[in-house]
Amino acid sequence: MSQSLNNVIQQAEQIILGKPQQIRLALTCLLARGHLLIEDLPGVGKTTLAQVLSRTLGLQFQRIQFTSDLLPADILGVSVYQRDSGEFKFHPGPIFAQMILADEVNRATPKAQSALLEAMEEHQVTIEGVTRALPPPFFVIATQNPAHQIGTFPLPESQLDRFLMRIQMGYPDAQAERGLLSGVDRREIIAKLSPQMERVELLALQKRVRAVFVSPALLDYVQAILRRTREAARYTHGLSPRAGLALLSAARAWAFLDERDAVIPEDVQAVLPGVVSHRLQAVGEYSKQNSDVLVRELIEAVAIP
């Protein structure tokens, strides 16, 4: 792993106290070229995480605050008639950035949501018949409030599938919170952060992640997990092949962060909650369980071959 990646992690850990796991998962997601969904209450540091990452990684950053009256054009951009030239000139929307923070994505209407989600899937947008590529590494961190809050349009399962991972921030522990409360204002520190790597370097790292070795034995294990979700009665439906691919690429990135050139089952287990918790739904009596418990059960149910 590169030194600069280490620096990124270190800096993030200094600002977001007591959440090393979340920071690593967020980086994993970025390295695996997926998008990240952070689901939690307001004020637990979702935005801070996104800001820290964009600054330290040296990425061009745009924030889109999703509201119920947000229109697709507010995200993608519009063409405006130029009086002097007599032509329409395209004004790119906030989505044309290397890193997007889509804040409170479930507060927008499905129409606006789909404009973002299609761009996430295709890494390009088509406006008025012209297809425009989005600048790599087009990385979206979306935050959403828990679905039971008022005034939300929960993302449908098909849309959730676009996110490689969903993580939860959770409350900080007592010690971390103490540090947070007694320390300097986070916003000031973030403003002072210097980029730790070039965009080119990040793209190169993403490429190296894809080269992490996956052995037949590990594929056996991943397949066993997928099979379990399809066969066990407690899930409404099993994981899709796309979920399997997502699991693999996330595990690759996790192994890479762990400085290994091959994926081991522990990597899969580490990223499994993030990758599958928003893709799995339990039926009947199990549906009341926390999604973490559900994933924990899944891990324990599948033996490592």
Binding site: I264, P265, E266, E300, A301, V302, I304
Partner: peptide, 9 residues
């Protein structure tokens, strides 16, 4: 070793 436990864990 638990069946699901990886070697390093």
């Amino acid at each position: 070793r638990a069946a699901h436990e990886g070697a390093q864990d």
